[in-house]
Amino acid sequence: MTAEAHKLPLGQRLFPRRQHDRIGSKVLFVLTLIPMILLIAITVALVIKTLPLLREYSLASLLGGTEWKPLKGLFGYLPFISATLWVTILALVIAVPPSLLTAIYLSEYASKPLRSVMKPILDLLAAIPSVIYGVWGMLVIVPWVQNKVIPFANSFPNGFPLLNTDNPTGFGILSGAIVLAVMVAPFIVAVTNEVLTAVPEGIRHASLAVGATRLQTIQRVLIPSTRQGMFASVVLGFSRAMGETMAVLMVVGNVVQMPGSILDAAYPLPALIANNYGEMMSIPMYDSALMGAALILLVMVLILNIASTLILRRLMGRVRRAW
């Protein structure tokens, strides 16, 4: 033993490995603080940046205002908030029924080979970058809306509810919603599938054994016991869709207005931030207003996210998740 070793405390000299363990656990513990610090830092930074705006304008005038004219000092978020809601809700209306049906089909009916083919397909859909979905939307969905849906909508002499528009381009809420729907569908399928797989086999067997068909088992046994989980997976998809930037930005038209129909162009919150941040820093309050948009988006997403996560957690405990 060297001279230095004698200077160490007795415990450390006798049990250096235990000491390493103690130090190691402390270092690792500090690392787990990073995510919490990050979450708090993001929220605090956005709030601080928005404060100058909140001092000048009332919250009601910001959230309820329909005029967005930074040069005149008018910052109404309502067109952006409603655009975000229109696009996201329509996307879910399109995506949820096929997604839930696909998930049920995969977990209850599909053969093993089909299931093993579908898993990589869902993984690939989830892996494709959003800008690629945007390119696809511009090349396939926008022309389809322009050449098929808009003439169809205009063929009604008195107009059709939610389909009236004077926007002839095809860039609009419907295009954005279709692209978003394709983006969130694999996600909803994966989560729902996971929830369904967590239901014990025995319950299905019991139902089938007393003479129920597969469908009756699904209706009376599986859906009631997984209703919450399905709901949570839809809410999680909703929050994903809400924050999606690039794909939507490329096909939604980006016109500041209160949308009146699903064929109108709109300007969702993420697009507002992406298109304007980093430029117009000379206009007073503009950067504060854009940070405010990020804050609104964050709050909307956090509420949905925390709610759905808590539901899923309670439902599945530490069951592993696939997404």
Partner: peptide, 28 residues
């Protein structure tokens, strides 16, 4: 309980849109 909190935070962070990360990073 600590592990539960860390996991919950991870789930929440995971759901934050990338544009918000971008805006946060830029302010920073």
């Amino acid at each position: 309980r600590w592990a539960r909190y860390v996991r919950l935070t991870m789930d929440i962070l995971w759901g934050i849109p990338s544009i918000v990360y971008g805006a946060f990073g830029f302010t920073l």
